[in-house]
């Protein structure tokens, strides 16, 4: 499924949560949605899933408005950290209801995940630990096979091993059953290699939409003598800069040709790769208005 948001704005009175959101998600790709808490990620996802209404602008999923649209909603699975469940429901009740709801549900896959994660299916959902609750959400998201699957910080309370297993299953299942996946996360380094595209949200606006490979190749740290670094970065987009004595360390984002790089290296500058996590932190951490 593909998604298109045009000039979407969401405000509660004077409090603007999202502003001028324009984005296109192509079908059968894995997207990462990145931003700090309160940047508007969840609101954005809820609007895509028709669980919230935009104050202005349009949302289109497969060229249709998803609001009360069964054809769209039945193809959509939204796993969110804040999901609540009926107090009296056991895990089994929840999984059976999900099975009855999603047209492409794979029960065998669901059972395999339940077994692998040791989910206590007979327990009431509210008796589960935070991590186990997240696991149930993740299982629903994976087994639903929904053509548009949205995970909003789905791993709260899950340990590193459980998270890795989730990523592995997500990737393996996506490879066999391609679908559009949006993964909202702040653990970008853990998932960066799964993603094809990254969308960075900051203060209710989209700061950047970029191919992960481009981002990875474009972000680099330049270290060297103050004056030389300053000369080199004149044409570059600087993310951060640190100086110690006569040495400056600058993180830049842009394209540096092989030629430029070799020449700079010959002049005594050195280059090193930057993790996506660091790029994201710097992109989203800058003071208001200076970005």
């Amino acid at each position: 499924m593909h998604v298109k948001l045009s000039k979407v704005r969401k405000a509660y009175g004077k409090n603007v949560v999202l502003n001028d959101i324009n984005m296109v998600l192509e079908k059968e790709k894995i997207y990462g949605l990145v931003g700090r808490n309160g940047a508007g990620k969840t609101t954005l996802l809820k609007i895509i899933a028709a669980q919230l209404f935009p104050s202005e602008g349009t949302v289109q999923v497969n060229e249709e408005n998803p609001f009360e649209n069964e054809a769209i909603l039945s193809q959509l699975c939204f796993v969110k950290e804040s999901q609540t469940y009926p107090d009296h429901f056991t895990v089994k009740d929840i999984l059976l209801t999900a099975k009855a709801t999603f047209p492409l549900w794979d029960e065998t896959f669901c059972q395999a995940l339940v077994a692998r994660y040791n989910v206590p299916v007979k327990l009431r959902m509210r008796k589960l630990s935070r991590g186990m609750r997240s696991v149930v959400g993740v299982i629903i998201g994976l087994a639903s096979r929904a053509p548009l699957t949205i995970f909003d910080e789905p791993y709260l309370g899950m340990d590193a091993v459980a998270r890795q297993y989730f990523y592995d299953q997500l990737l393996a299942d996506y490879a066999d059953h391609p679908r559009t996946i949006i993964l909202s996360t702040h653990l970008i380094d853990e998932v960066s290699e799964l993603l094809e595209h990254v969308i960075v949200v900051k203060e209710g606006r989209i700061l950047m939409q970029e191919d992960v490979e481009t981002l990875r190749a474009g972000a680099v740290t330049v270290t060297g003598e103050k004056g030389k670094v300053a000369a080199f970065i004149q044409q570059q987009h600087v993310l951060s800069s640190q100086t110690l004595g006569n040495v400056t360390n600058v993180m830049i984002f842009g394209t540096i040709s092989r030629q430029e790089r070799l020449q700079a290296e010959a002049e005594g500058l050195s280059f090193s790769a930057v993790s996506l996590q660091k790029v994201m932190v710097h992109l989203t951490d800058q003071e208001k208005g200076s970005a």
Partner: peptide, 16 residues
């Protein structure tokens, strides 16, 4: 209230 929150999480149409 409780079932609606869950149903909405499963993207069930409100009218349904």
């Amino acid at each position: 209230g409780q079932l609606f929150a869950f149903a909405s999480g499963l993207s069930i149409k409100r009218m349904h």
